[in-house]
Design a protein around this nucleic acid. Structure first.
Ligand code: FES
Ligand code: FES
Lengths: 146, 146
DNA sequence: TATCATGTTGACTAAATTAGTAAACTAACG
DNA sequence: CGTTAGTTTACTAATTTAGTCAACATGATA
């Protein structure tokens, strides 16, 4: 079960936006790209996808940029993964249509297993918000200042 | 987070072997391949990998074949996924070496998040054994006999 | 011991997906 | 207007996944 670079980039971008959420300002793609070491041209696609999912909002034109569409405490890891991949778990059998012919094979029962795992993974991932992640980041950073 | 075809094939193969576990017999690759619709030549690799992970054992030569190395109740979904992918969650940052330069970026803190998610996903997946999965399969099949 | 049916191994190829790039377009601000 | 920054779509390159092949090793059996 691998997490794509795209999904991790998306998380890092949201994390960066979280830091700027207090000041109600927008931040440029370029700044996010530099600060989080994400290829800028790739980040363009990612931010648009986040925007379509309603996690991020944009302001166009000069003085434009991006900002979170809602509070970091209301954006979860699960939200971001789903925004990128469509679902938390992508597996062949889950996208297939149900058919009776494979009742005998393991396909049907495994499908139920994956759905179960996906639900429970959702509980985990929806419980992790960027508010918390950001605070953890602050905490681990502060160790270096002691 | 996608589950590879290989991993699902592996689960189906183990499920098939589970059915034959009572009778202490081996079953040929070809039979598993046919019954579970898995490309036989591909299944060869998968079974060897399962074997190296200690989940499956083989008997060579004529009358050879495969069997589970331990009881289905002692083989979990997590075991099989780990046997195929090495870890439950594969993400760039988890395989990278730790370095201090990215403390400021989101990489370090996200790494911890992924490890957390992996642990919790492990608890879920290690709790699902092929014994249970197989019983579920029997149950859903029996509905068709009523 | 010959032979045949099986598992073992590693190298190979093809297909699909992912990651990344480019360029033309649109909107906003000054 | 002109400049800055987001939008959209199409394209390419790199990587990974899926699948194949052929030569080899092993064990039962006649
Ligand atoms: S009947 Fe085939 S997946 Fe449910
Ligand atoms: S310091 Fe870079 S991932 Fe932990």
């Amino acid at each position: 079960m691998r997490v794509s670079a795209k999904a991790e980039y998306a998380c890092r971008a949201v994390l960066e936006l979280t830091r700027y959420h207090e000041k109600a300002e927008v931040i440029h793609i370029g700044d996010i790209a530099v600060r989080q070491s994400i290829p800028e041209k790739y980040l363009v696609q990612i931010l648009l996808q986040l925007q379509r999912a309603g996690l991020v909002k944009s302001k166009r034109g000069a003085t434009g940029g991006y900002a979170l569409a809602r509070a970091p405490g209301e954006i979860s890891l699960g939200d971001v993964i789903r925004a990128m991949d469509g679902a938390l778990i992508a597996v062949e059998s889950l996208s297939d249509d149900t058919n009776v012919s494979d009742q005998m094979s393991g396909q049907h029962v495994l499908k139920n297993v994956w759905m179960d795992v996906q639900d429970r993974l959702g509980e985990i991932m929806d419980g992790i918000t960027f508010d918390e992640i950001s605070r953890q980041a602050q905490k681990s950073l502060s160790m270096y200042y002691i």
